[in-house]
């Protein structure tokens, strides 16, 4: 039954994650933390950190990680496959009916309307990670400094993450 739940959960995520992987995070969190309780909230946040440290789309990382934790290799395969399945089917559909798809005003309207929805979901992600990812003033300091360095292009993502981890090790590790 676990495999079926994994399949259905990530199929839902795959079908409704408009706007790329980041926008899929609220959906993923809903399914794996709230509905099925496959990961705890802290584990979900650690998954975000792991996703940034590994190659590939964040939603694929999340599907593989959750599937692996719940059902081993087969679970990882089922979850990742279920997430990719809507992409396979919908792209075939679109390529087959390309001209009609583009010119239909209802389809165009729907797609245009997804933009504010995407912004709302993204803001929800930002608020949620700020709330849960920062424990104390040291974390806040690290986050603001890191954000500024990144914004002005002084450092890249992976070195920054490793640096943050190392500083965390020094600061939190001693106590």
């Amino acid at each position: 039954m676990t495999y079926l739940s994994l399949f259905l959960a990530f199929l839902r995520v795959g079908f409704f994650s408009f706007g790329g992987g980041l926008a899929a995070l609220p959906l993923i969190e809903r399914e794996i933390v709230n509905t099925y309780r496959w990961l705890s909230k802290p584990e979900f946040l650690e998954l975000l950190a792991l996703s940034q440290l590994t190659p590939g789309p964040i939603a694929i990382n999340a599907a593989t990680f959750t599937g692996f934790k719940v059902g081993g290799m087969l679970g990882a395969f089922v979850a990742t496959g279920a997430f990719c399945l809507p992409s396979v089917l919908l792209t075939i559909l679109v390529v087959t009916f390309l001209s009609r798809f583009r010119e239909n005003p209802y389809v165009a309207g729907f797609l245009r309307g997804l933009r504010p929805a995407l912004l709302a979901l993204l803001l929800r992600v930002a608020l949620s990670v700020i709330q849960d990812g920062i424990y104390d003033w040291f974390g806040l300091l690290l986050s603001i400094t890191g954000g500024a360095l990144l914004f002005f292009g002084k450092i890249e993502e992976i070195p920054l993450l490793l640096l943050g981890g190392a500083l965390g090790l020094l600061w939190y590790g001693w106590r």
């Binding site: 990670v129 920062i134 981890g165 090790l169």
Partner: peptide, 17 residues
């Protein structure tokens, strides 16, 4: 855990950006 606390603080800035 100490490593992830530090890394997570930076993940926050990555995501917000």
């Amino acid at each position: 855990q100490a490593f992830f606390r530090g890394a997570l603080a930076v993940v926050v800035s990555l995501i917000v950006l």
